[in-house]
Design a protein around this nucleic acid. Sequence first.
DNA 1: TCCAAAGTTTAGGTCGCCCTAAATTATGAT
DNA 2: ATCATAATTTAGGGCGACCTAAACTTTGGA
Lengths: 228, 228
Amino acid sequence: MPSEAVDDYLKAIYEIAGDEGRASTASLARKLSVAPASVTGMLQKLAQRKPAPVQYQKHRGARLSEHGKLRALEVIRHHRLIELFLHRVLGYSWDEVHDEAERLEHAISEQLEDRIAERLGNPEVDPHGHPIPRKDGSIPTRRDMSLLEAFVGSETTVSRVSDSNPEMLRYLAGLGISPGTKIKLTGRAPFDGPLTLEIGNSRKKQALGPTVAGEIRVTPPLNGKGKG
Amino acid sequence: MPSEAVDDYLKAIYEIAGDEGRASTASLARKLSVAPASVTGMLQKLAQRKPAPVQYQKHRGARLSEHGKLRALEVIRHHRLIELFLHRVLGYSWDEVHDEAERLEHAISEQLEDRIAERLGNPEVDPHGHPIPRKDGSIPTRRDMSLLEAFVGSETTVSRVSDSNPEMLRYLAGLGISPGTKIKLTGRAPFDGPLTLEIGNSRKKQALGPTVAGEIRVTPPLNGKGKG
DNA sequence: TCCAAAGTTTAGGTCGCCCTAAATTATGAT
DNA sequence: ATCATAATTTAGGGCGACCTAAACTTTGGA
Ligand SMILES: [Mn+2]
Ligand SMILES: [Mn+2]
Ligand SMILES: [Mn+2]
Ligand SMILES: [Mn+2]
């Protein structure tokens, strides 16, 4: 079984590059708060394991092998199940779940993973709307787009938000924005200006900066269906 | 914050010697599956920390300091809360909870500890009847005795059972014995022979070997109160 | 084509936690 | 008082995961 450090490397590669792309040494060093030389060393070691979780080419970064990809998804599944469990069962707010899950993801057994999933009804998304990988490594997909790219006038539903910044999560919670919330995009100022929104059933206009809007993903209403 | 290894040493000392006695090098080596020389080395290092969690004297083993005692109790509190949580909320059987708790006890935050305790209604005992230390380090006490020492003819209630052997736990579960179960001791064969019991409301006699009986603790009926 | 930036290599080191083997010393029960 | 046992010391080592500094190589864009 991979160590916590190895799991963190695999997860980082997945988060940076997905299951196809390559993660550069520098990007991994940044994400893991580790020196570049340490990353090079670790990637070389991992690439020589049998089975190797990563493919590594000098100066070209690392790519997950099938093995590595499955392991990364396993850890991410743990993480997101735990986040949802903390939220639903233990009353954690969505800005508190990440740090706790970051440690627990390495400590739970397959059995506990299964019981948590069962207890939650085999959920497909975590509290931030991120998809929870299935046991077989497949991922529930949702076609969505950045709120930044939505058409002015469209009525959308929030599908997910970035969970990397607790402060932003609290801000969004304050605005009443979370997965499932309806948002009508009523205006967009030029030159990367703020968006104007109607949130939920409220008619009140709310301005939202582009930095925040870029971290919100939404699904448009069903194909061509008008309001009624 | 102490490492997992240090916490395991403190817990082991507590389990061997309580908060007063000393744990010998050999006993720690056995319990932790580690070489005696490693134990000596670790105890010396711990005794020099500030604040030192253990007092150490050559050839005389280790004793927990106040600091060390509180830390040991903290970890044990985690362990037992987690055991009960797994049992009550996630449907673990009582022979499955220990191994899972053994890892998780090191990974949960104070916040999670609190939420678990809250969710369980601030319980005083774990699934095996072991007392759960309180946050301040005090321990719910229950006057109980080994089933081996109970009087023949007395009607007792199981207060706790040893949780160190999953197979024994499954055996006891099969007999219908768990904390809270009523047991009437109807006979005791000489020369460390088996006890004869009536378990719960059943009138059926059940023989129980002394090894198992020694791992069961019971509370006698309330002072002098007869059956009715 | 050239060069800065990114990445790598090497050499050396740290820290925590563990190991062995062999020599030595202290303890406590007889 | 003796002596087996328990404990300690010393010297050496290993592993995983990190670090720095400095030299080097590769890459890719201007
Ligand atoms: Mn992690
Ligand atoms: Mn999340
Ligand atoms: Mn442990
Ligand atoms: Mn227990």
